[in-house]
Design a protein around this nucleic acid. Structure first.
Length: 603
RNA sequence: GGCCCCGUCGUCUAGCCCGGUCUAGGACAUCACCCUUUCACGGUGAGAACAUGGGUUCGAAUCCCAUCGGGGUCACCA
């Protein structure tokens, strides 16, 4: 009997079952939302929903040099787009005026930069309790020592100054710090075993002596990540921390601090004035990592790599393409381009320019990339949920259940079913999921979402297709949905709509094969077919298809091919297009006749 | 290198905790065939995995150990 005390039971751990579940996603606003971060957020969200708890966003902007408000806003927008909405956290006003996020509990502010006084108060308390101390070494010197140790294949650990004793307030150091001498504050790690309670991996034990005295307050008076996260998780009532395994090695530090910290009177529950309220250790769940298929990390540098490889291939074909020649075409400075090619920089601007100018597809890494590429948020969430988690259920026909939405996750997500093994991001499978999600859309929904995507990322096409009467768009949706794995691919299938009725660029090979061959049989059939069109009453996709079949039969053709292909070329310029019924219906009678005439004249 | 984590088809995984129902199931990808006016969609089918070696046991993908392999982490970044 596993009973309730199985090591992976969600109720086991330092938190009691009666605690109201609070999870949090705590991004650092130093860029866009990474696809892996999105999964972390999704799992945190799902766990909170499943347990009737709250999901919180906190912005970890303690790196003053790299953090930005634009980045924070972008991350929030990406989360909202994915349908991952937070109960507590910064407010975000959506395009439709709806607001996500509030300080209803209230435990804000949710930007760590605004919480610095709180951290300072706890730093002081820790120092006075003899569990932290100001340190005055020069950063460069320590760095040199560290490097030397690494070079000698030795484990580097900060050496505690001789005058620092556990549990003893070092007033002299405190005075020096207070007087303005540059310093950091280090946590005083006890010589004891640390146990990290983890619901995915089981308890992880770290032997005594492994932890050194790490920095908790930087010289710029900002807390380090480790310190801020511990203070905030406690003060914000976080009960469960779900995050990627890359954080596992950090967690012993957090546990050690939780054991040393006690809530300040101003942060203590009412009525507890007489006794101290120690910090609690939340339940941890470290999720497996996500890598590229080749095993490398999914990094935004992958975009630069792909662009560089593509450009280098181009240059091999065309040696005249020097940085100077490329500069005006790419809209970038020649030295930047040269540096980019020489791997001196991974400029995203250069990479994007290469992608635009040479039509090179860059790998999607961040949520915004997937959005621009025409992925649906529901497909992304579905696929992401399967990376490291699995519902372990079967469908009615006995197959593994793997198609579900966020509502399903909110109902069924559990930490017990998070796997332990790292996974590789399989774009093929995501693509397949996305294609299925598109196919599952109603015609109306597809048109709405496709147009919205186009207005954002392909405005010229949006103008053109937006001009098509709405009643014809249903046929268009039917034509495109089964052919599009992404919204962007849908544009390819709809290319015939963007064509001018007078355009004469007909694919030569196709013209030769389907129209000129057999003494121009195709041309002859097309000419005859054109004459039947004026009088045709039923201009619906089905009516048109039936008409085409009837015409073929009347002409003794074994199948409609001999007329269908010439017609396709006339209407679309190419031998490949969606079904002719839909195509003709969308183009409309007038344009169809014009295009056929144009083609008949041109070939 | 120290510490920590992991190891089922090419990929994501079900099965493992509670050993026999597993000649290991599904999905994506691949290949073949069917459908077909092109391209897709769809349908049917095929190939494809328990890292290795030792135990324990009547019996191991499932339990134990070792080896090998992979990953994370060792900052005044988060």
């Amino acid at each position: 009997m596993p009973g309730p005390f199985s090591s992976r039971s969600p109720t086991l751990g330092p938190m009691t079952a009666s605690d109201h579940v609070v999870t949090r996603f705590a991004p650092s606003p130093t860029g866009h939302l990474h696809i892996g971060g999105a999964r972390s957020a999704l799992f945190c969200w799902a766990f909170a929903r499943r347990n009737g708890g709250r999901f919180m966003i906190r912005i970890e902007d303690t790196d003053q040099a790299r953090s930005s408000d634009e980045s924070a806003r972008g991350i929030l927008e990406d989360l909202a787009w994915l349908g991952i909405e937070w109960d507590d956290g910064p407010s975000l006003t959506l395009a439709d005026g709806r607001v996500i996020g509030a300080d209803s509990r209230p435990v804000g502010p949710y930007f760590q930069a605004q919480r610095v006084p709180i951290y300072h108060a706890y730093i002081e308390a820790l120092v006075k309790a003899g569990r932290a101390y100001p340190a005055f070494e020069d950063a460069a010197e320590l760095e040199a020592k560290r490097k030397a140790a690494v070079a000698a294949k030795q484990t580097y650990r900060y050496e505690r100054p001789a005058d620092v004793k556990p549990g003893v307030f070092n007033a002299a150091r405190w005075e020096r710090a207070q007087s303005g001498e540059p310093h950091v504050v280090r946590f005083l790690a006890l010589h004891e075993e640390i146990i990290v309670p983890d619901q995915v991996l089981g308890d992880v034990r770290i032997a005594a002596g492994e932890l050194d005295d790490f920095v908790i307050l930087k010289a710029d008076r900002f807390p380090t990540y480790h310190f801020a996260v511990v203070i905030d998780d406690e003060l914000m009532g976080v009960t469960h921390v779900l995050r990627a395994q890359e954080h596992l090695a950090n967690t012993p530090r957090h546990v050690a601090m939780q054991k040393a910290l006690v809530r300040l009177p101003q942060h203590s529950p009412p009525g507890s004035e007489s006794r101290a309220t120690p910090f609690r250790t939340p339940v941890y769940a470290h999720m497996p990592l996500i890598f590229n298929v080749d095993g490398t990390k999914m990094s935004k540098r992958d975009k630069a790599k792909a662009a560089r490889a593509a450009l280098q291939a181009k240059i091999k074909q065309e040696p005249a393409l020097t940085a100077d020649v490329l500069a005006p075409r790419l809209g970038a400075a020649a030295p930047d381009i040269a540096g980019f090619l020489a791997k001196d920089n991974d400029s995203l601007e250069v990479a994007t320019a290469i992608s635009r100018v040479f039509g090179v597809a860059l790998p999607e890494i961040e949520v915004a990339d997937f959005r621009a590429a025409g992925y649906l948020p529901e497909a992304i969430c579905n696929y992401l949920a399967l990376l490291g988690w699995n519902p372990g259920m079967k469908t009615e026909d006995g197959k593994d259940l793997e198609k579900f939405d966020n509502a399903f996750l909110a109902e069924h997500f559990s930490i017990e079913r998070i796997g332990k093994t790292n996974s590789k991001f399989d774009r093929n499978k995501l693509l397949s999921f996305n294609g299925d999600a598109i196919a599952a859309l109603s015609d109306d929904a597809f048109i709405d979402r496709w147009m919205a995507w186009m207005r954002e990322f392909e405005p010229a096409a949006a103008d053109r297709i937006g001009a098509v009467p709405r009643d014809r768009l249903a046929a268009l949706a039917a034509a495109i949905k089964p052919r599009a794995k992404t919204l962007r691919e849908g544009l390819k299938s709809a290319a015939f709509l963007l064509r001018d009725d007078e355009a004469t660029d007909f694919e030569a090979k196709a013209v030769e094969k389907h129209m000129r061959a057999d003494d121009g049989r195709g041309v002859k059939l097309l000419r005859e077919f054109r004459e039947t069109l004026n009088a045709l009453l039923d201009w619906s996709p089905a009516g048109l298809a039936a008409h085409l079949d009837a015409f073929a039969q009347a002409n003794g053709l074994p199948n409609p091919g001999p007329i269908a292909q010439p017609l396709r070329i006339a209407l679309t310029g190419a031998a490949v297009s969606p079904g002719l019924g839909e195509t003709m219906a969308v183009i409309g009678r007038l344009s169809c006749l014009k295009r056929i005439d144009t083609c008949l004249h041109a070939v």
